[in-house]
Amino acid sequence: MEEVLQREGVRQFTLHARSSVLGFYSRLGYLPVGEEFTEVGIPHRKMVKELSTVA
């Protein structure tokens, strides 16, 4: 997905990650933003990753 977004010129990708898997997304380069919140009854954090553009 990141490769497709990069080809389309997207520079930043945001997702809502379950708090229990923050480490997984952190290892992929995502950074947590803001406070924990509840979504569909489960604790989540917003996470953001800067994508490099492909020439």
Rank of each mutant, 00 (worst) to 15 (best):
T53W: 01
R45G: 02
E8Q: 14
Q6D: 00
R45E: 01
Q12P: 01
E50A: 13
S20E: 10
H44T: 09
K49L: 00
Q6S: 06
Q6G: 00
R18G: 00
G41E: 04
L22H: 08
A55L: 13
F24Q: 14
E39D: 06
L5W: 03
F37H: 15
Q12D: 11
L28K: 15
G9D: 04
L22M: 09
E35D: 12
G41T: 09
E50S: 09
S52M: 15
T38A: 10
L31S: 10
M1A: 14
Y25S: 01
G34A: 09
E3Q: 14
V33Q: 14
S52C: 14
E35L: 15
P43F: 12
Y25W: 07
V40H: 03
E3R: 10
M47A: 01
L15Q: 03
P43E: 15
P32H: 07
G34T: 04
E8H: 13
P32T: 12
S52H: 14
R45P: 01
L5E: 08
T38P: 03
G41L: 05
E2K: 08
A17E: 03
V21A: 14
S26V: 10
H44F: 09
Y30W: 04
S20P: 03
V10F: 10
L5K: 00
E50V: 06
V48S: 08
L28T: 13
G41N: 05
M47C: 01
G23D: 15
V40W: 03
T14L: 14
R7S: 08
T38G: 11
M47R: 00
E3C: 12
V21R: 03
R18S: 02
P32C: 13
V4S: 14
H16T: 13
Y30D: 00
R45D: 02
S20W: 03
E3W: 09
Q12N: 09
A17I: 05
G23I: 08
Q6Y: 01
G23F: 13
G29L: 07
R11M: 09
G9P: 04
L31V: 10
E8G: 07
G29P: 06
V40G: 02
A17W: 03
L22C: 10
E39N: 05
L28M: 12
E39G: 08
L15P: 01
L5D: 03
A17F: 05
G23E: 15
S19W: 08
G34S: 04
E2D: 12
E8F: 07
L5C: 15
E8K: 11
L31F: 07
R45F: 02
E3L: 10
R27A: 05
R45H: 10
E2G: 15
G41M: 07
L15S: 00
L15R: 00
Y25T: 00
K46R: 15
Y25P: 00
K49E: 03
R7H: 07
V21G: 11
P32R: 12
V4P: 06
Y25M: 06
Q6H: 06
A55F: 14
V48D: 04
Y25E: 05
E35A: 13
Y30Q: 00
G23C: 11
R27W: 04
R27P: 02
F13P: 01
V10T: 06
S19Q: 13
Q12R: 15
F24C: 11
Q6T: 05
L22Y: 03
V21Q: 04
R11P: 02
P32N: 13
V54A: 11
S52Y: 07
V4I: 11
V21M: 06
G41Q: 05
T14N: 14
A17R: 01
M1I: 10
V33K: 12
M47N: 02
S52L: 11
Q6V: 01
V40C: 05
